[in-house]
Amino acid sequence: MKIYRFLTEDDTSAFCHKVSDALAKGWELYGPPTYAFDAAHGVMRCGQAVTKEIDRPYSPDMKLGDQ
């Protein structure tokens, strides 16, 4: 079973750390990163999709970051 997450963060090193942490836990990059202006907060935001193969069925109750 493949699961999917979309990681977001302000355009700071925190975003790079969030993606690096996911990669260290076995997640794989899915597509290119995105970059957009968040007008509500006046900051640039980054996003990156990641996927991971797991050995159990998907459940909407699972916490994806703990997989």
Rank of each mutant, 00 (worst) to 15 (best):
M1Q: 03
M1K: 05
M1D: 05
K2H: 04
I3Q: 03
Y4T: 11
R5A: 03
R5H: 00
R5T: 00
R5W: 00
F6M: 07
L7E: 04
L7W: 00
T8Q: 00
T8G: 04
E9S: 08
D11M: 03
D11I: 01
D11N: 09
T12P: 09
T12C: 11
T12W: 08
S13W: 07
F15Y: 01
C16L: 02
H17F: 05
K18H: 07
K18A: 04
V19P: 00
S20R: 05
S20D: 06
D21S: 13
D21R: 13
D21L: 12
A22T: 06
L23W: 08
L23V: 11
L23K: 07
L23H: 10
L23T: 08
A24N: 15
G26S: 14
G26K: 11
G26W: 10
G26Y: 11
G26R: 13
W27F: 15
E28A: 15
E28M: 15
L29T: 04
L29W: 01
L29A: 06
Y30T: 12
Y30P: 10
Y30V: 10
Y30E: 15
G31T: 09
G31N: 11
P32Q: 12
P33M: 11
T34D: 09
T34I: 09
T34Q: 09
Y35R: 02
Y35I: 03
A36R: 13
A36W: 06
A36D: 10
A36M: 07
A36I: 06
F37S: 10
D38K: 04
A40K: 09
H41F: 08
G42H: 06
M44G: 04
R45N: 02
R45S: 01
R45C: 01
R45W: 00
C46V: 01
C46Q: 03
C46R: 02
G47T: 01
G47S: 10
G47N: 02
G47Y: 00
Q48V: 03
Q48N: 08
Q48I: 02
A49P: 04
V50P: 01
V50N: 01
V50S: 02
E53H: 08
E53C: 04
E53Q: 12
E53G: 04
I54S: 07
I54L: 07
D55A: 09
R56E: 11
P57A: 13
Y58D: 09
S59P: 07
S59Q: 08
S59K: 08
P60V: 05
D61S: 12
D61Q: 12
M62Q: 11
M62V: 13
L64A: 15
L64M: 15
L64T: 14
L64K: 14
D66K: 11
D66T: 09
Q67M: 14
Q67V: 14
